[in-house]
Amino acid sequence: MESAIYMPQIAADQFLGIFIVATMVLIFGVGYAASITLSKMGFIAKKWQLFGYAFWILQVYTLYDLGMRIHSSPFTTKVLAVAMLAYLFAPHLYFYLIDEAEKRYETSEDGQ
């Protein structure tokens, strides 16, 4: 009888690596967003944004690694790669919108 559920064969000793890599994907993602944010807020110099991009590269790598470890399908791998490209632009889009909003409402007295 054909199996009803496709269960990818993951060896027991692979799980810890999978959970750690999955966590690192998000940690590096926050590192990237945090570097850009702290630089925009003036807490760190603009040149440190480069570290943010290093975080983003590490995030892309860990996500790729995760995809390999869990035997992700080629379609999902491609879609995740596109999502990572979108994530590269997301903080810049945020702060562009914030700058524009601040310019627009700079003179508004009705802040509250």
Partner: peptide
Amino acid sequence: IWGFFHTLPQVNIY
């Protein structure tokens, strides 16, 4: 984090 590391189907089945 706790959601992401078990949300993909290949891991979620376990």
